[in-house]
């Protein structure tokens, strides 16, 4: 299969090969940009659930902080996404 892919790639003009490589790299960069926030949100929500279990009377305050924390962490992924879009299409 990889030999066939190599032959197909050899048939493509250099400009197409370059744009395919650029698209792959941009996709990889966006994937990496979402990985960190994913780990961050998992950790954040895990700790929040633990805090709510330990102190149920503070659940409202914990959830308020958790929601803002999720949104802040998500901003990192959004920045990665916007940079990806701008590099790819502008």
């Amino acid at each position: 299969m990889s030999i066939l892919a190599q032959i197909a790639a050899d048939q493509l003009p250099a400009a197409d090969q370059k744009s395919i490589a650029a698209a792959g790299q941009a996709g990889l960069a966006y994937g990496l940009a979402t990985l960190g926030p994913g780990i961050g949100i998992g950790y954040l929500v895990g700790q929040s659930v633990q805090a709510m279990a330990r102190q149920p009377e503070a659940a409202g305050m914990v959830r308020t902080t958790m929601f803002l924390g999720i949104a802040f962490t998500e901003a990192l992924a959004l920045i990665g996404f916007v940079v990806f879009i701008l590099l790819k299409f502008v």
Binding site: E57, A59, G60, M61, T64
Partner: peptide, 9 residues
């Protein structure tokens, strides 16, 4: 929301 009377989100 802080006392859990409404959904804070």
């Amino acid at each position: 929301a802080a006392i859990g009377a409404t959904a804070p989100e």
